[in-house]
Design a protein around this nucleic acid. Structure first.
Lengths: 350, 350
DNA sequence: GAATTATTCTGAACCGGTTAAGTCTCATTG
DNA sequence: CAATGAGACTTAACCGGTTCAGAATAATTC
């Protein structure tokens, strides 16, 4: 009936228009039990009619100390995370779980400047650090805020953040055992992802590994090695290759090179499905028969892995997101969570 | 020197510790010109030392009326947008541009409930609606807020939001002219994306189109038809197929079906590169020679299109993101922006 | 050297909500 | 029927900054 007068609609104005106190309007939105049902409905209806779109978030946040936003710190650019099926599934699980609690996520691509900014430091109610350890100084800064902090796929070596991850080492070991054990004279190539900070793909020596952080790749590498030691594969039958990006094109080219060597490997242990699939492409390019001449295992179990019958390690990515959400929202006990993995045996390495 | 005492650090406490007024500390962070250089540096250093991570965003936002967050309303699920290369590039361009202004983006996947929530309504300083028109009621709600509102890839049929897009109709017409003109007896199939709300892929009749909104696909369809009319292709030589998802697997299967008909098409007008690439896959599956027996054009120019030599319409996706950012941040004039497209002629349709 | 202008810093009023404590009314209980 | 309690609504004190008008001090002008 009455027209909106002032341009900015506030809860106070609503209260005046309707003829109740601010507190009551506030309660109508937030605590239905604090007023009678009919009044509440009248208030909500009036607000709707007057075009009031609900309590201002900044004001609410200021008072309650909660913003309803969780910051997700990503290891790479947004673009990378968008196109990577692993990150993708994790974010999907996370997003769904947060949605359910009416919490939004602020995606924060890796960028020092970003993390320094006071926005990043003061907006979120909690943080999820995905995939790669941050610089210690940044982690400390985040911890210092006293907000829930959960790391995904790695464990901070200090502080008391909670971690959600799988046992990469164990899973990798299991995969390697499966792949290598049946082969009489195994020649193994390990295709690693970001094992060093080198930006070029290539063969790497042990000493170059020195100093790399406790990353996913490092744990997977340890797993492979554990298996190779157990199976008594001689070190000179093992080569370790590093790829700076999880990029199929690049890996495929490099893999063709590796697989056309005279003493080419007959087992490929790949730290991601994308790498493994690129290796399969390369093998096909060269007419190498999989699995007869070359056994390939991947890691992650992305959708394409199933289509192409890649033997790989399944990890519950969406579940990981869900649990990370539950912890950061303090819906679940505040302890490290180790999710289980499963070796899925398919045609690339039966 | 002095240890942090209270748990919560506020600007006021900093001021007391340092021995200046709140206003001065605030100015140290926000308006360097309001105090002497040496005092400013002392204040900043002290805050750092005391572990103060900068002004609380909620309080700041409450006062200034700006949150430094732009809401991006996506047509699909997060997961879809992550994996779709077109959305991906757009978001990359957008993200970079926003970053530069120290503005964050809140990604809001399509979900009615989401859009109703007062968080979505009150957090962002502005909105970018990507890809598909929202329900009118939602659009109106957003407009009512009086915040900058820019629509991407479509134009709202009411209100005064600004739009950033390409001339889909013109570009589609151009592509169709190029594809069809050289063919003596053209039999054309149009592969559309979400032309109806049907969830099954299939042949669709004209009447089913009735009532669909002014979507991207609709405009592209008009463009194709304009060309076909100009080239006097008889209607019974044209078939229109609809795909509910931009999903390569599904399209490939369907395309095999279509391409193995006795009177199979010799020109394929595809509303996305993904669809076109799937069609190329299908043609290869069936041993149909491209472009001799089948000419294929796509739309969007995703990276894979180049690799596979697909003739397609290039549109400046990152640029689109950049411009959307500039407009929503009011860095640029407040007018509709039509970006230009370019037909890239490659092997699939020389 | 007095008057004017610049520079630097402070005081205090907001911004728009939330919430603990309190008031008022009316039903319940011993 | 007085006392107790429950239910419905209001009061007022925050939450943690920003910003404008003004005070105090230093620099410039005539």
């Amino acid at each position: 009936m009455e027209k909106t007068a002032g341009r900015k609609l506030t809860l106070k104005e609503m209260a005046e228009q309707i003829g109740v106190s601010k507190a009551t309007v506030s309660n109508a939105f937030n605590r239905p039990d604090q007023l009678s049902k009919q009044l509440r409905e009248r208030i909500l209806a009036q607000c709707e009619a007057l075009g009031y779109s609900g309590p201002n978030m900044s004001a609410r946040s200021l008072r309650t100390g909660k913003t309803g936003i969780i910051g997700v710190l990503l290891a790479d650019t947004l673009s990378f995370n968008f196109s990577d099926p692993v990150a993708n599934q994790f974010l999907e699980g996370l997003g769904n779980a947060l949605d359910k609690q009416h919490v939004n996520m602020l995606l924060l691509p890796s960028c020092e400047e970003n993390y320094q900014s006071s926005q990043v430091q003061t907006i979120p109610d909690g943080y999820i650090v995905y995939g790669q350890p941050l610089k210690e100084s940044l982690m400390r800064r985040l911890e210092h805020q006293g907000k829930p902090l959960v790391t995904v796929d790695f464990t901070a070596s200090f502080g008391q953040s909670v971690s959600v991850h799988v046992d990469n080492q164990k899973a990798a070991c299991e995969a390697a055992m499966h792949a290598v054990a049946p082969v009489e004279h195994p020649r193994v190539s390990i295709f690693g992802l970001r094992l060093t900070s080198a930006i070029q793909a290539g063969l790497i020596a042990d000493k170059e590994l020195f100093g790399i952080e406790e990353s996913i790749s490092r744990r997977r590498l340890e797993g492979y090695r554990e298996a190779l030691v157990r199976l008594k594969v001689k070190p000179d039958m093992i080569s370790l290759w590093n790829f700076p990006h999880n990029d199929q094109q690049q890996v495929r080219v490099m893999a063709r090179g590796i697989l056309s060597a005279p003493e080419r490997p007959n087992v490929l242990l790949c730290m991601s499905d994308k790498i493994a699939l690129a290796a399969l492409d390369a093998a096909r390019d060269l007419g190498i028969k999989v699995p007869q001449e070359l056994r390939v295992v991947g890691f992650d179990d992305i959708p394409e892995a199933m289509e192409r019958q890649l033997t790989t390690v399944h990890q519950p990515l969406r579940e990981k997101g869900r649990i990370a959400a539950d912890i950061v929202l303090q819906l679940q006990s505040f302890e490290d969570h180790v999710l289980s993995t499963e070796l899925l045996v398919r045609n690339s390495c039966p």
